[in-house]
């Protein structure tokens, strides 16, 4: 009996190695999963239903930020909602920076939640609603695989929704990673010959203590990401000197992105929108 099992096991293993379907299985292997999570909601009181797409990625795989960097494509989530409801864009947490020899990418690894708001007008007749999220992402390690999926769920908006501790913590932690858009920082930008000089003034004592400052633009193709952003500190001001992208042909009139400050194990990001003087 034991011999029969061994022979059967060997036969199965051999079949799985030589059968053409083996390739098909390995190509279709999923290295990521995505699911929809909803924040707490109180009918009649809340006009926004916060929804998160939670990505769980296998070790060493990543997906991309709104600006993917030198390669890749931005992760996209399109919500299909009942008439009368609409959603915000993705609220992007601060991305990780993947620095390779010849290129730099911005994105997320391990686990990330990309949040959006679904706006519910006061005139909307609450009931069960179907929510569909069409996700298009590129999943990369040393190779890339498209990760396209559609998530469907129905949620009853007539009763209170409360979250378990785990989901509640996910929303709290993701909120902390969102760039701060309401701040007192004063930004100025200008070109000096080819390099862009971005000055940030009015930094407080805590902010000046950060070890590193990096500006990540929303628009791709403006900067060289492999070139170091030089930092000049002066009082409560820092100036970042940024090299242009190798093949950029036009100098933009404005700049939008996030200023990422890192130090002592903490990270903080501020949204910056500034006209560029030529």
């Amino acid at each position: 009996m034991k011999n029969k099992i061994s022979l059967f096991t060997i036969a199965i293993l051999l079949f799985s190695f030589i059968h053409p379907l083996n390739n098909l299985f390995s190509q279709n292997r999923t290295n990521a999963a995505a699911k929809l999570i909803f924040d707490s909601f109180i009918p009649g009181k809340d006009s926004i239903l916060k929804v998160g797409v939670l990505f769980e990625l296998e070790k060493d795989w990543h997906i991309y930020w709104r600006n993917p960097g030198d390669s890749g494509i931005p992760t996209s989530i399109e919500f299909i909602l009942p008439n009368g409801l609409h959603s915000s864009g993705i609220q992007w947490p601060v991305p990780s920076i993947f620095n390779y020899d010849t290129e730099v990418n911005f994105g997320y690894e391990n686990q990330v939640m990309l949040m959006s708001d679904i706006f519910i007008p006061s005139s909307y007749a609450l009931g069960s609603i179907k929510i569909t999220a069409k996700i298009e992402a590129l999943l990369c390690k040393y190779i890339c695989i498209p990760f396209d999926t559609i998530l469907n769920t129905t949620i009853d908006l007539t009763s209170d929704k409360t979250l378990n501790d785990h989901a509640s913590k996910l929303f709290e932690e993701t909120e902390k990673l969102l760039p701060i858009s309401n701040h007192n920082l004063i930004a100025k930008a200008n070109y000096e010959i080819e390099n862009l000089h971005l000055s940030i003034d009015n930094l407080n004592e805590t902010q000046m203590k950060y070890d590193s400052f990096l500006f990540l633009p929303y628009e791709n193709g403006l900067f060289s990401y492999t070139a170091e952003q030089k930092i000049v500190r002066d009082g409560n001001q820092i100036t970042l000197i940024v090299e242009p992208a190798q093949f950029r042909t036009q100098k933009p009139d404005s700049l939008e992105g996030i200023l990422v400050m890192k130090g002592n194990g903490s990270i903080q990001a501020y949204e910056i929108k500034v006209p560029i003087s030529h």
């Binding site: 030198d70 390669s71 890749g72 494509i73 390779y100 020899d101 010849t102 290129e103 990418n105 990369c140 040393y142 190779i143 890339c144 791709n220 193709g221 093949f247 950029r248 042909t249």
Partner: peptide
């Protein structure tokens, strides 16, 4: 139009 941002997989240097 002399330049645009390329898109795709990274070059596997």
């Amino acid at each position: 139009i002399q330049s645009s941002k390329p898109y795709g997989c990274s070059v596997k240097y």
